[in-house]
Amino acid sequence: MTIKQINGCIGCGICVQTCPTDVIALDPKTKKAFIKYPADCQICHLCRMYCPVDAITISPEKSIPVIVSWG
């Protein structure tokens, strides 16, 4: 699932800005961050490291098939 869950979000929006691939968005109603485009997560953990309340959980699996060159 790549970026997996956001729990205990306070809605500061830093993760939204920080994500290089624009995966996270703020819900205008709940004022909380949610995972809008999980397929684009590059599993870099910047959002987690920048989150002031450590609300973000990330797992190493990608949500879409991964293409590698050899292996």
Binding site: T2, I43, M49, P60, K62, V68, G71
Partner: peptide
Amino acid sequence: PGQMTNPAACFDGWHGMFE
């Protein structure tokens, strides 16, 4: 190269270097 287990996980692949 990348790692075969979870090849997409760049954070995990670099074993904490990003931290």
